[in-house]
């Protein structure tokens, strides 16, 4: 029983690590396309999902609480960045 939980946790950690690797690769890959900042924010959404998965399955209740907080704080931060870019007249800057 305990071994099963360890294996499931290991698989989830592996999947999260793979997601983080692909996301960090994609962040550097796309350059000089229109709406670059939005594209990077979208890709960072994958990092958010992977980190939520990690925090939930780390096995400590207080850290899982941080994951719940994540659901409220992340959209606010992303929305602030996107809105300031949209209103600031930066246009299609990279």
């Amino acid at each position: 029983m305990n071994t099963d939980i360890t294996i499931i946790t290991a698989i989830i950690f592996f999947v999260s690590g793979a997601l983080l690797l692909v996301a960090s690769f994609a962040l550097l890959r796309f350059q000089k396309i229109p709406h670059m900042l939005y594209a990077r924010l979208h890709i960072l959404g994958v990092v958010d999902a992977a980190c939520i998965l990690l925090l939930v399955f780390l096995g400590k209740p207080i850290i899982a609480l941080v994951a719940v907080l994540y659901f409220i704080l992340t959209p606010v931060a992303v929305h602030s960045i996107a809105k300031s870019h949209y209103d600031g007249g930066a246009g299609d800057d990279y």
Partner: peptide, 22 residues
């Protein structure tokens, strides 16, 4: 939907066909 679209974004990033628009 978070899980599905995360996998979708990963697929699109690897494929290289992204086209952001407002």
């Amino acid at each position: 939907f978070i899980a599905m679209s995360a996998l979708n974004v990963v697929y699109l990033s690897l494929k290289g066909t992204i086209q952001p628009e407002v």
